[in-house]
Design a protein around this nucleic acid. Structure first.
Lengths: 142, 142
DNA sequence: GCTTGACTTAGAGTTAACTCTAAAGATTAA
DNA sequence: TTAATCTTTAGAGTTAACTCTAAGTCAAGC
């Protein structure tokens, strides 16, 4: 059993247009076509799409995703490259997570700041609460 | 004391080109110019840039960042909108973090998978370790 | 058999966010 | 004062990742 491009698209939360675009970019060399030329997505193809989504969702550009797919198609000789790619990606994700953590602290500060401001209808927050000013300096000093 | 566009750019890790682009897009209405027409960035302007970086770094499009800046320029009446914006942004960041967490699990799985494959020089990982296949199914079932 | 809707391709268009260029003016160091 | 190195503008060009269009083909239900 297999899925049409529209069904596959729905299953992974993309559009058929996007899947065709990926195919054109060489990201879906594994997808076969029926005798009449329609793409037929297998369960295994859907898993490929999920891996692509995972890599795209963690910020890997399509070009590098294609590189990975190409390695997969080349066979066992490229296992070290593929392992290395995932190790690098893990590193990037963790760096990104750390960055977001820092950004989140700033956002939380701003929420505190504007909550006070909203309550009083003005921005004299630091005059009311000088400790917040210290906190701000720490958060934005780098 | 104030900074030239190049100095400011260096301080926040952007290029002078990018800062001019931001200015053109209306993101830097607070930056004043010298009598001879050069932009002069104050300490306070640098802080603005850091907030912009925080919002951009957590995925907010420049258009919406401009909306926030515009609200700031409008005065106290827009405090509720600004508070709301940061609350929404916090929500987005936390959703994104959760997504990345899931992606990271898949990446960690792939690392395990390819480590085994690299050790043996082939991809018969699931024949050697059927438990990994179960783990894979759980990770990619959604 | 016919209609309706999904599929095919090539290729054009869009959007966001830069990124660069050219020509001219400003600033700094020797 | 002069050379080198900024900075200014308007506007063009780039890149990634879609997004859409047109004209035609295919498939499923009646």
């Amino acid at each position: 059993m297999s899925y049409s491009i529209g069904e596959a698209a729905k299953m992974v939360g993309l559009t058929a247009h996007t899947l065709r675009f990926y195919d054109k970019e060489g990201l879906l060399p594994f997808v076969k076509k029926t005798s009449s030329g329609l793409r037929a997505f297998t369960e295994s193809d859907i898993e490929w799409l999920k891996i692509i989504e995972c890599l795209k969702g963690t910020g890997l550009p399509l070009k590098q995703i294609k590189q990975y797919i190409d390695w997969c198609m080349e066979g066992d000789a490229t296992i070290p490259q593929r392992l290395n790619m995932f190790i690098e990606q893990k590193k990037r994700v963790e760096e990104q997570k750390a960055k977001w953590e820092k950004h989140l602290e700033k956002i939380n500060f701003k929420i505190k700041y504007y909550e006070d401001a909203a309550q009083h209808g003005d921005l004299n927050v630091f005059e009311r609460n000088p400790k917040l000013l210290e906190e701000k300096k720490k958060l934005f000093e780098d």
